[in-house]
Design a protein around this nucleic acid. Structure first.
Lengths: 142, 142
DNA sequence: TATTGTTATACTCTATAACTATA
DNA sequence: TATAGTTATAGAGTATAACAATA
C-alpha cells in the first residue's frame, strides 16, 4: 500500500468533516430561528442575552469585529427585542432584552428544540459522546 | 429531578455546542485559506473540484441557491483558477480547475493541514471518535 | 494612552424572482 | 414542461480604518 505523495484533497478528513458538519448545523439552526424571522447571528445574540452583556462581549462571543455588533444590535433594537442600557463605565453599553425579547427567546428555544437537527441521526449515547468531545474541544485553554 | 418548564437558554446543549464548534471550525478554515487569498466558500469549491463538476452539483455541495454559484465561480475564474467547460448536455457547464488552480489546491491543502484547527485540542483517539460520529451524522439518509 | 462603541466603506455570501438556452 | 445556468436585486454579515467619548 503506497503513500500518495500528491494526495487527493481535501486532506485532513477531520477538518473536512467539521466544515460539512458546521454547514449542516448552521443551516438547521438558521431554519429553526427563521420561523421567528431572525437570522442565525441575531438568534445567537438573543440566546446570549440571558443577562445583559457589553457590546464587546458580544463581539467576542460571535468571533467577529466589534463594528459588526453595532449593526446586529441595531436590527434587534429596531424590532423591539433589545435595548442599550448605559453601564457604570460610561463607555460601556449593556445590550439587554426587552420583555418582547425575553418572550422571543423562549419561543426561539422551543423552535430550535423541536426542529430537525443533524445530531438527530445519532443514537442518544452517541449524542452524549459527541457532546463530550465538542465540549472538550471548545473548553477554554488551560 | 424536576423538569424545568421555563428552562435556561439556549436549550438543547448539543445544538448549542454544534453551533459554537461550527463557528470555530469555519474560522480556522477561513484563516488557513486566507493565506492564499481565498474565502471559505471559494476554498470549498476549489477542494470540491478534484474533478470537473456541474454548477448545480456545486450548489448542492455548498447548500446554497444555484444563483450564488455563478458569482463564486466568476471570482475564481477572474483569478485564473477555474474555467467553465461545456458539457455534453449543452445546458451544463463543468467547472474545471486550471493548472494554476490545481497548484493552488495543493497549497490550500497544505495550509489547512498545517494550520491550527480546533480538533488539535483532542487526543488522537478522540479525534478518531469525533470523525466517526460526524461521518455517521452526515452520511446520506438510508 | 488605551478602551468602548460608532460610522463609513467595500466586499462576499445569501435567497428570490425573472430570464435564456437547452432538453 | 422541466432543467441548467445567468442576471438583477436587496439584505445581512464581514473586516478595515477613522472617529468620539470616556477611562
Amino acid at each position: 500500500m503506497s503513500i500518495d505523495l500528491d494526495p487527493p484533497f481535501p486532506p485532513r478528513d477531520l477538518a473536512r468533516l467539521m466544515i460539512r458538519a458546521a454547514d449542516a448545523a448552521k443551516h438547521a439552526f438558521a431554519d429553526a430561528v427563521a420561523t421567528e424571522g431572525l437570522t442565525a447571528q441575531q438568534a445567537r445574540v438573543v440566546f446570549f442575552l440571558g443577562e445583559p452583556r457589553q457590546m464587546k462581549d458580544l463581539a467576542d462571543h460571535l468571533h467577529c469585529d466589534a463594528s459588526n455588533v453595532t449593526g446586529i444590535a441595531d436590527r434587534l433594537t429596531r424590532a423591539g427585542w433589545v435595548t442599550r442600557v448605559p453601564g457604570q463605565d460610561r463607555r460601556v453599553k449593556l445590550l439587554t432584552l426587552t420583555e418582547e425579547g425575553a418572550a422571543l427567546r423562549r419561543r426561539l428555544g422551543r423552535a430550535v428544540m423541536s426542529g430537525p437537527f443533524p445530531t438527530d441521526r445519532l443514537a442518544v449515547d452517541e449524542q452524549e459522546q459527541l457532546g463530550a468531545l465538542l465540549q472538550r474541544m471548545l473548553e477554554p485553554a488551560t
